[in-house]
Design a protein around this nucleic acid. Structure first.
Length: 414
RNA sequence: GGAGGGGUGGGAGAGUGGUUAAAUCCACCAGACUGUAAAUCUGGCCGCUUAGCGUACGUUGGUUCGAAUCCAACCCCCUCCA
């Protein structure tokens, strides 16, 4: 029942990665007849990628799996400008050092999922600063700028919204599109790259590159975007109480990552299994039809394994089982250190909440107490002046604090 | 440079001298029900040493017993004109 000739397009199609493709038949034919090179661009706006980015990295994984060559393009140059697409306001400008730090943080995850090297089929890590930073303004305007119509650029949905809401769009940001378009052409010239992929919000930017290639005489270029992942109840994916779901373990631990997927809505389980795991499709449909809660655990473990490694994933699963199913204490829960002397002196329960990030402020911790959500060693705390001291240590030498049914942390004396 | 409009809590958006820490909606958090799901209902949602206090409606200064609300200057944004 394959709708495409090429393995690559079939995998993407069957797993639900495709939202829009500029010329499906053309691209399919190209993929079926030989090896292609494709890229996804990543802006260096944070020290880690987040779960939204994982979708496109996974596409690059499947690209490589099906015998083609992926390029991860770091936006060392474009991040100096900032992508205005679908944003209300300009972000603060990033310094060159900040961008470089960010790139270093982001690289780690690519290396885990793709295999880089110099052999054919190995992935390439490229930085668009290599060419963007060297551009000569007038020359660039004459060679590239003349191919862009401002009228058309203004009509793109990604900027139109901003203008319709009467929010300013600086000339700096407006140039982002041109730079991204130029990247595509440059990657074609240097590496024969013919396909750019990205999230659906990138469609306008990608299409600009395809058009520019056309005008500047490259072979036919292609665009492919993924659907914007939303949960079945309509929320954008990747938000939690504390913000984004990051892929780097120093920002979002494997345990938290596992929990994030464990809490997937029923209606999303099959969709997420297809996108965030590598399990064969027939197995996915079998799992999804069986016990839904088991399917969520498989989803969580498989997805965590891809990002954090199999060992960390299984550890997270074990911790979850002990904590949620057996009600036992698991020493692998997220833990925070407290000095022995502080503990001897006694620390207020509210302060302990803030220390362990269970609450952002004493006030918030107090509200937790008022609503009966806060527990110390599994018993509800109703007195906000309760002091946590040595006597509260469990035989294992830790103190367990919980907010609600799901958030548990340990306090460890050191 | 000129004319007009505007800047309110995470977002949207009321409020145009006083019971206004600021309506309402969304997002978010917790409780109940459940399956670590959804939906629903309930409570919460600036900070603190919380019967109180301190900050807060672009910034600074002023008028007033009292200002997010009035005045002045400045900053920023939008529209039109040059």
């Amino acid at each position: 029942m394959a709708t495409y000739k090429s393995d690559f397009m079939n995998v993407l199609e069957q797993r639900g990665f495709i939202h829009q493709v500029s010329d499906p038949e053309g691209l399919d034919t190209l993929c079926a007849s030989g090896t292609i090179t494709a890229y996804v661009g990543y802006d260096a706006t944070a020290t880690s990628l987040h779960i939204g980015n994982l979708i496109s990295v996974t596409m690059l994984y499947w690209l490589q799996e099906t015998g083609h060559r992926p390029i991860t393009l770091m936006g060392g140059g474009t991040s100096m400008v900032g992508d205005p697409s679908f944003r209300d306001s300009q972000r603060g400008m990033l310094s060159a050092e900040q961008i470089n730090t960010n790139i270093e943080g982001i690289k780690r995850i690519f290396q885990r999922i793709l295999s880089y090297g110099d052999n054919p089929g190995d992935a390439l890590m490229i930085n668009n600063a290599d060419w963007l930073m060297k551009l000569n303004y007038v020359e660039f305007l004459r060679d590239v700028g003349r191919h862009f119509s401002v009228n058309r650029m203004l009509s793109f949905e990604s900027v139109k919204q901003r203008l319709d809401r009467e929010q300013s769009l600086s000339f700096l940001e407006f140039n982002y599109m041109i730079m991204q378009g130029y990247d595509f052409v440059e990657l074609n010239r240097r590496y024969g790259c013919v396909l750019q992929m990205g999230g659906s919000d990138q469609w306008g930017n990608i299409i600009n590159g395809v058009d520019l290639g056309h005008r500047m005489g490259t072979p036919q270029l292609y665009a492919l975007t993924t659907p914007l992942l939303t949960t079945a109840s309509g929320a954008k994916m990747g938000k939690t109480a504390d913000g984004a779901v990051w892929l780097n373990d120093n920002l979002f631990s494997p345990y938290e990552f596992w929990q994030y997927f464990r809490n997937t809505e029923d209606a999303d389980v099959e969709k997420f299994l297809k996108i965030f795991t590598r399990l064969p499709l027939n197995e996915i449909s079998r799992i999804a039809k069986a016990e839904i809660n088991e399917a969520k655990k498989i989803l969580a473990t498989e997805a965590t394994a891809i990002v954090h490694g199999r060992t960390a994933a299984e550890q997270a699963e074990a911790t979850a089982r002990a904590t949620f199913e057996q009600g036992a204490l698991d020493l692998s829960l997220p833990s925070f250190n407290i000095s022995k002397s502080d503990l001897n002196a006694g620390i207020g329960i509210l302060a302990a909440c803030v220390l362990t990030k269970l609450a952002a402020s004493n006030g918030e911790a107090r509200r937790h107490v008022k609503s009966g959500a806060l527990r110390l060693n599994d018993s509800v705390i109703s007195d906000e002046r309760r002091v946590v001291r040595e006597a509260d240590l469990l035989p294992e030498g830790v103190i367990k604090l919980s907010v609600g049914k799901k958030r548990h942390v340990l306090l460890k004396p050191v």
